[in-house]
Amino acid sequence: MPNTTPVPWAEARETAWAAGYEHRGPATELPFAEAVGSALAAPLVAVSDLPAFPTSAIDGWAVAGPGPWRIGGEVLAGQVPQPMKPGVAVKIATGAQVPEGTEGIIRLEHSEIGDDDLVDGPPAREWREPGEEAAHGEELLPSGAPVTPPVIGLAAAAGHATLPAHGRPAARVVVFGDELLTSGVSREGRVRDSLGPMVPPMLTAAGAATVPSLGPVEDTLDAHVAALRVALAEADLVCTTGGTMVGPVDHLHPALAEIGAEYVINTVAVRPGFPMLLARTPDGKFIAGLPGNPQSAVIAVVTLVAPLLAGLRGLPLPPLRTAHLAEDVPGRGNFTHLALIDRAGRRLGHHGSAMLRGLAGAAGFAVVGPDTEAAAGATVDLATVPGV
């Protein structure tokens, strides 16, 4: 039996992230939609001046020479204008290319048009110069920067169609348990599976490309091994539910041994959720063992899976937020306590490990460190759930 000394919660997060980062695959040029949520695998460089030509910052009149100016046409965005002539005013739209020879632009709201169709008003330099935002070849963002929607916009404006990044790891949930139903209500000693439908959207929110869950898988070692092999054939990460202890129907540990997986983490000093694990197969794929109780399984996603996926995509360890407690939160001895709280900092009811009602309305988990308690008014770390 492998070492079962629980790993401190903060160390577990860092270890899971480091395992993912160390074993992330090679980066490729990805379309924007596939790169978003990853990290740049190389610096983002402007492939042209930004803007590439002088661009009007306002709707107005481009003028040259002394005024007042005779109206002489218009320039819209997307057009290449003729050079300006002295004494002429050309109506220009925001974002349009400024004609060569323009000496100033009069804002529409500051302009006056006389009965003789002459434009008058105070001209100013109301345009963006070529390269004002970035020069051709200039580094815009460093390698490792998260690819967010604004980064996608910047990359497109700078002339890119793809980005060097790590794609979404493929992930699949394998649900263990003869006692689970996939439809209807709990009955006759069997309960409705909540993790099969709940965990995949969390994995998607955490950066995985997720396929439908597999199972429920019957409680035999052969069935567990077969299910793991099927899931690993098409996924970089397999998240199993249940079977993380050593009871009479807990077959995950012997199944991991059967397929040659090695433990990265085996149990974490956190309540709820301590019997979680992370293992790695000989061919570099990962298996995250989530406890069967729903809230414990979610804590395993927060603790191990979200950091692992961040590492696999080249991202930093997901930062914790903070929360201001409105009431006391007890500790859990020498284990870290992850306590459900709402957005007002109040501890939620229905917070048992097997319950989901409190979790459904939670802002996240207040982090209460080992051998401590958190008093009302304290500011504590907040671990949030992917997708919430």
Rank of each mutant, 00 (worst) to 15 (best):
V264W: 05
A52S: 14
V249R: 15
R172K: 11
I299P: 01
I92N: 14
A261K: 09
A18S: 10
L195V: 01
D342C: 08
A57H: 06
S353G: 09
E139G: 00
L154W: 06
Q97I: 11
I113P: 01
V268Y: 01
T102F: 06
S56C: 11
W69G: 08
A378V: 01
G292P: 01
W17C: 03
H166K: 02
E373R: 05
R107D: 15
P200A: 06
A231S: 06
D328E: 13
F335D: 06
R128F: 15
G387K: 09
D342N: 15
K85I: 12
P201F: 09
P275Y: 07
E100F: 13
W17F: 02
E100V: 08
A41S: 14
V368K: 04
T379M: 08
T281V: 00
P200S: 07
G167K: 12
G131P: 11
A134G: 06
E103G: 15
R229V: 14
T379K: 11
V80F: 13
Q97P: 07
D120K: 09
V380H: 11
V151C: 09
E100M: 02
G377V: 13
I71N: 00
E262C: 09
L340S: 12
L317S: 13
A226L: 07
V174Y: 14
V199L: 15
A18Y: 05
R107C: 08
A269L: 10
P386F: 01
L277G: 02
A288D: 09
M1N: 02
G369Q: 08
P197V: 10
L50V: 15
I299W: 01
T28I: 00
V388Q: 12
A62F: 07
G114W: 03
A223K: 08
T281C: 03
R125M: 15
R357A: 15
G114Q: 05
A231F: 03
V173D: 03
A165Q: 06
G131Q: 10
L320I: 03
A255I: 04
T102P: 09
V380Y: 15
F335W: 14
D381K: 07
G67Y: 01
E14H: 05
A339W: 04
A208R: 07
W9I: 02
V388D: 06
A135Y: 00
E34R: 13
P6K: 02
P164E: 13
A288M: 10
P8K: 06
L278W: 05
A96D: 11
A366Y: 12
H324I: 07
V147Q: 03
P254S: 09
F32P: 08
H251F: 15
A288I: 05
H251N: 08
A89Y: 10
K91M: 13
G247F: 10
L40H: 06
L76G: 07
A42L: 04
S56K: 03
A209Q: 14
E29R: 14
A209I: 00
P294V: 14
A93T: 08
P282I: 13
G289I: 02
P318M: 04
T15Y: 03
A376Q: 12
G331N: 10
A10M: 11
A206I: 01
A344F: 07
V45C: 12
